[in-house]
């Protein structure tokens, strides 16, 4: 197998993992699937386009800013739209409606034409005599750092503890003084910020237009059920599996890899109806 394929599958995996972990976080606390998650990815990509490409701010600062801005949009939406509506199924429909809202709004502001972001890491690097695109290597490295940071945040900080408690036993967590409502606002912000980061680091590699959010969302949905809902580890495994199918398997069997990515979800769920690492849900 050519080494470029290996890097390529890591790139895809990191995109899916970042998307899936945000989706899983929001789901575990709020109990709803955020169908507009892909559009937050798109917003993140546009933020990078405007901050890094147009305004010329440093790539990493732009990334942080885009995550903060999009995370803030997510917080506003949770606080002023989702929470007043309350009921989960209505909230899900609101997220579906938000897809059109964001896509329409961005088309209005930035136009339907695709934009591009210059790579912050141009050129190729030689590793053990193999020439690899430094853009792709950098993407993988950034993604790995982000995923480790997210893991440490959830496992090692007090806020992370509150988050886990609110996810497992919201009522009990409330009794112990955790403000579950505030935690869910925060989690919506973090989840959307993660999607924006994914969009931001992928933007220079692909392109930016108002409709780029659809595909990553579908893959993230598949990733979280492969791994099992409500577990970050599951999202990572699901992302890696799908990334490998989308790249390594695509190299060997071409077009049919897409059928495999959908098929494997059903096969896994047949044998483990709660995903590889999830808890059973009736």
């Amino acid at each position: 197998m050519p080494p470029a394929i290996f890097i390529d599958s890591l790139v895809l995996s990191s995109m899916y993992i970042l998307m899936a972990s945000g989706l899983v976080l929001v789901f575990s606390i709020m109990g709803i699937l955020n169908f507009a998650h892909g559009q937050f990815y798109m917003l993140g990509a546009y933020a990078i386009f405007y901050l890094f490409q147009q305004a010329g701010i440093n790539f990493f600062i732009s990334l942080a800013l885009s995550a903060a801005i999009v995370g803030f949009v997510g917080i506003l939406i949770e606080r002023y739209i989702m929470r007043p509506i309350g009921q989960p199924i209505q909230a899900v429909v609101v997220t579906i409606a938000l897809i059109s809202v964001f896509e329409g709004l961005i088309t209005l502001i930035a136009g339907p034409a695709p934009h591009s972001v210059t790579s912050a890491f141009p050129g190729n690097v030689d590793i053990f005599g193999v020439s690899l695109s430094s853009e792709r290597l950098a993407t993988v490295v950034i993604a790995v750092i982000l995923i480790i940071a997210l893991y440490l945040f959830i496992q090692r900080t007090r806020l992370g503890l509150a988050l886990r408690a609110a996810a497992q036993q919201p009522v009990a967590a409330g009794l112990f003084g955790i403000q579950v409502a505030r935690v869910s606002t925060l989690v919506m912000g973090i989840g959307c910020g993660l999607a924006a980061l994914a969009g931001g680091i992928m933007a220079p590699m692909f392109y930016v237009d108002p409709w780029i959010g659809g595909q990553p969302l579908v893959m993230a949905l598949l990733a979280i059920v492969i791994g099992g809902m409500g577990s970050l580890g599951g999202a990572v495994v699901g992302g890696i599996v799908l990334g490998m199918i989308g790249s390594m398997l695509a190299y060997y069997i071409g077009f049919w890899s897409q059928l495999i990515s959908f098929g494997i979800v059903i096969v896994i769920l047949l044998f483990r109806p709660q995903g590889l690492f999830g808890q059973s849900e009736k």
Binding site: A4, I5, F206, I212, S247, G254
Partner: peptide
């Protein structure tokens, strides 16, 4: 959007 595996093939 990722054509790398197909291009290598």
């Amino acid at each position: 959007t990722n054509f790398t595996p197909y291009l290598i093939k």
